[in-house]
Amino acid sequence: MFYSTYYTSPFGLLMLGSDGDNLIGVWLEGQKYFGATVDEDMAEKDDLPVFAATKKWLDKYFAGQKPAISDLPLAPIGGAFRKVVWDILCEIPYGEYITYGDIAKAVAVQMGKVSMSSQAVGGAVGHNPISIIIPCHRVVGANGSLTGYAGGISTKIKLLEHEGVDMSRLFVPTKGTAL
């Protein structure tokens, strides 16, 4: 059984998902792949301890604090490859960013491969079910391109600015498939 509740953030309404004990999702209303990792209906249940802890975490984050990702019991649903990518995302420090290529290199090392496709990594990053907390918004293209955020590029920019990221080397591409 899966459960949901809602949280009103400065960037819009968020739906939180849980298996009863762990956080399995944080989705921005209207985002691409909204709820995609959950194959069954979620019953609305506002009083789960994991939801209270997540809302407190989000309150701190949006107040400009830097709550630790490890403070929450995360259990994103996905295959082994995606979970490796999501674990790497959790290591990106607040207020910083890395490239898809950097993640691809780290995944290759962890999986004992010579190389890894940045596009494959981009797919896993884009399907991250725990937005904001697992910070997929901190991933950019090799040239500083702000692409590939399921919640929309404008939200990605707002999240990076909220964290005080130096945006001077980052830009929104005028064309591309990952806008």
Rank of each mutant, 00 (worst) to 15 (best):
C90R: 15
E44H: 03
C90Y: 00
G20P: 07
T99P: 11
Y7H: 08
G35Q: 09
V140D: 02
R169N: 12
G25V: 05
I133Q: 09
I157G: 06
N128D: 02
K32T: 13
A53K: 14
V172T: 14
S118M: 00
I130D: 04
W86T: 02
G123S: 09
M167V: 03
G148H: 07
F81I: 07
R169F: 05
L48G: 07
M111L: 15
I130M: 08
V84K: 10
R82Y: 11
F171Q: 09
I77M: 13
I77F: 05
D47A: 11
T147M: 11
F51H: 03
V38M: 11
T155P: 00
L89W: 04
V139L: 04
Y3M: 04
P10S: 05
A53I: 00
G101Q: 12
V50F: 04
M42F: 03
Q110W: 00
V165A: 08
K175C: 03
V172W: 00
K60A: 15
A124W: 02
Q65C: 02
I88M: 07
N143K: 15
L28K: 09
T37M: 09
I103A: 01
F171K: 06
G152N: 05
K56E: 14
G176F: 05
A108F: 10
E40W: 01
S4D: 09
K45R: 14
K66V: 10
G95A: 08
I98A: 07
D46N: 13
I92E: 07
L159G: 07
P93T: 08
G12D: 09
A43D: 11
S115M: 08
L160C: 09
T177K: 15
K105R: 13
D47W: 02
D41C: 02
S118A: 15
K60M: 09
D102T: 13
D47C: 01
K45N: 12
F171R: 01
V121W: 02
V114I: 11
I77G: 05
D59P: 02
I88K: 11
V109M: 10
S115Q: 12
L14W: 07
G12M: 10
I69T: 09
S9D: 05
S117M: 03
G148C: 06
S115C: 04
C90M: 14
A43G: 00
S168L: 01
N22W: 01
L74N: 06
V85H: 01
L89P: 02
G12H: 04
P135K: 08
S168D: 09
I132K: 06
I103H: 01
W27V: 11
R82C: 11
A150V: 04
A124N: 02
V26T: 12
S9K: 02
A104S: 13
P49R: 06
Y94A: 06
Q119L: 13
L179E: 05
I132R: 05
E163P: 10
T155V: 15
K66N: 09
T147V: 15
G101P: 00
W86P: 02
S117H: 07
S115R: 14
S9R: 04
A106E: 15
E96D: 12
P173S: 08
S118G: 14
Q119F: 07
A106D: 13
G123K: 05
V84I: 13
F81C: 01
W57T: 06
A53D: 14
R138G: 10
G126Q: 10
K105E: 14
L58V: 09
A52S: 12
R138F: 08
S168R: 12
T174R: 15
T8E: 14
T5L: 00
V114F: 05
F2L: 10
L13M: 13
A104F: 03
V114E: 15
K105T: 13
